[in-house]
Design a binder for these strands. Sequence first.
DNA 1: CGGGATACTTACAAATATGTTTGTTCTTCC
DNA 2: GGAAGAACAAACATATTTGTAAGTATCCCG
Lengths: 127, 127
Amino acid sequence: MTHMTSDTDARPLADVFAADCPSRRILTHVSSRWGGLALIALRPGSLRFSELKRRIGGISERMLAQTLQQLEADGLIARRDHGEVPPRVDYRLTPAGQEIAARYFELAGWIERNLPDLLAGARPPVA
Amino acid sequence: MTHMTSDTDARPLADVFAADCPSRRILTHVSSRWGGLALIALRPGSLRFSELKRRIGGISERMLAQTLQQLEADGLIARRDHGEVPPRVDYRLTPAGQEIAARYFELAGWIERNLPDLLAGARPPVA
DNA sequence: CGGGATACTTACAAATATGTTTGTTCTTCC
DNA sequence: GGAAGAACAAACATATTTGTAAGTATCCCG
């Protein structure tokens, strides 16, 4: 395993500017309408399909299923089928998913916390 | 001005789960196909329209204009028209834009740096 | 004078994302 | 015996996003 570069590395992100870089695909999934919400929802712990559906207000079953499949294919969440009947399946973040969820959470969290200032068009008092 | 809650506050983000929360709109713009890239591109400093277009490979003029207008309306970037002819306009991040760009940059950066591990489906060694 | 650059805008068309409805296969509850 | 819940899949319709091509006004360059 290669060592991970530091999180504060500030290289210009050359690749992500390239239209055909695979990182774009993952970034797209993560920041799709439901992808990020699903990741955030799973941060506290694993959830079942129906629990996720109830928690992420407004999502349809089709979208939830599709979103979960994408994130699973990207290796960000893990699906566990208990093989019972009636069906019982739950989802949880993989280690990579936790890393990404944490970062998306910071983004969403900052926006939410500073929403009043943003809506007012006022420049929030940057630290 | 209200005081800002700390950046490491880990509340569950109740609002963002609500379909009609305004934070969704901003989050959508930021994480739209081009929004985040534009923010990242502007991190080093202001750029003109055509410079942005060249830097963000693959973007059309239409999309760039639209993206910039959204981000401007959200108060994340500032547009300055030099009033010259031929036109000369440049864009730069507002303080709020810098905050958000920094967080999006961390997300995109982490993905890009750990891309090999992600593509391999291997769980990266989380710190 | 023709050509190119600048920063867009406005149709129009295609691609993608999302939603709705129905169905499946069992089980438990009333 | 219905009825409801579980975790989806498939078909179909629509909405939203994105792209393409062309046009606008003005200037400078050769």
